[in-house]
């Protein structure tokens, strides 16, 4: 039974999204091409499906949410869709396993990407329950359009310079990134790590010519670990995640909160599993959640 429910919900969700357009199309087509009897049948079937689909999901999802406002362990169920910044990949994956162990009927699925891309997708109606970007700007964009509310800060992250193993170019700080012959990869200004890197470079008074403006922070890590770039500005957590494949160098501007990434988290407005979403946020903010985040190099909020 515990296997059947998410399946059915998923199917109904699929139908609900499909059906607003389907009957119109089918009826139009049927009217155009067919003799009366089969056309009417097709139209009826289509409308019938639309009817079942839409009342099915909405009411059941709503009922589900209300019935579980105070979740104890084991009372939550269903799918939980978490849209999170690429830099949270490792920490959230581990937290996801722990959460599922605590709530066996919940299946957590993640979508890790650039925060700005996720914000865009949520505003376009992507089925996220939780949104956890790597900056307050992306969160603000979503909350301002009413697609999420009441964000909480779960972690902070410091910038670091990622260099090749053994640091062959002898990079010791931001100033060295401006040296000719240093191939530098940064995040694009459209994503949080790019904006922070730009701010840090400006603060340090360093003008650089990046070879590439990558689309998310993990792409910068890839370019450095593959040896295509000599250095990249990433997060401290990425240096930790790169393990022995690359090395980290501090940016030399410590303790400046304006140069730290802030990680807000919120339940989305269209969350289909709001109860599990709230439980997830509580879990991440709990002692255990914070311990896991710290293990991956995040600073406490």
């Amino acid at each position: 039974m515990s296997h059947e429910r998410p399946m059915r919900r998923r199917l109904r969700g699929f139908l609900a999204r499909l059906t607003p357009a389907a009957p119109v199309v089918l009826v139009a087509l049927a009217a155009l091409v067919a003799p009366a009897a089969p056309a009417a049948l097709v139209a009826l079937v289509a409308l019938g499906a639309a009817g079942c689909g839409s009342d099915g999901t909405n009411t059941s999802a709503a009922a589900n949410d209300r019935s579980t406002t105070a979740p104890g362990p084991g009372t939550l169920s269903g799918d939980l869709q978490v849209f999170a910044a690429a830099s949270l990949t490792d920490a959230f994956t581990e937290l996801g396993k722990a959460f599922e162990a605590e709530h066996p009927k919940v299946t957590v699925t993640f979508d890790f990407a650039a925060s700005s891309a996720l914000a865009q997708q949520i505003d376009e109606g992507a089925p996220a329950d939780v949104f956890a970007p790597a900056d307050e700007a992306s969160m603000k964009r979503v909350t301002e359009r009413g697609n999420a509310s009441d964000p909480r800060i779960i972690a902070r992250n410091r910038l670091a310079i990622l260099v090749e193993k053994g640091n062959p170019k002898g990079i010791t700080g931001l100033a060295d990134l401006a040296e000719p012959g240093v191939v530098l990869a940064l995040c694009a200004p459209a994503v949080p790590c790019g904006r922070l890197a730009d701010a840090a470079l400006e603060k340090a008074g360093v003008r650089v010519e990046p070879a590439s403006l990558e689309e998310n922070v993990k792409a910068v890590v890839a370019k450095v670990t593959l040896g295509e770039a000599d250095a990249g500005i990433v997060y401290a957590t990425d240096v930790k995640a790169a393990g022995g494949k690359a090395e980290g160098v501090g940016i030399g501007i410590a303790g400046d909160p304006s140069l730290e990434a802030v990680y807000p988290i919120a339940v989305t407005k269209q969350a289909r599993n709001a109860a599990a979403a709230r439980a997830w946020i509580e879990f991440v903010r709990s002692g255990e959640g914070q311990k896991t985040l710290a293990k991956f190099g995040f600073l406490s909020p």
Partner: peptide, 11 residues
């Protein structure tokens, strides 16, 4: 023309 094929094709 077969109605089912036409409908699905139209979709």
């Amino acid at each position: 023309p077969p109605i089912v094929a036409v409908c699905i094709g139209g979709v």
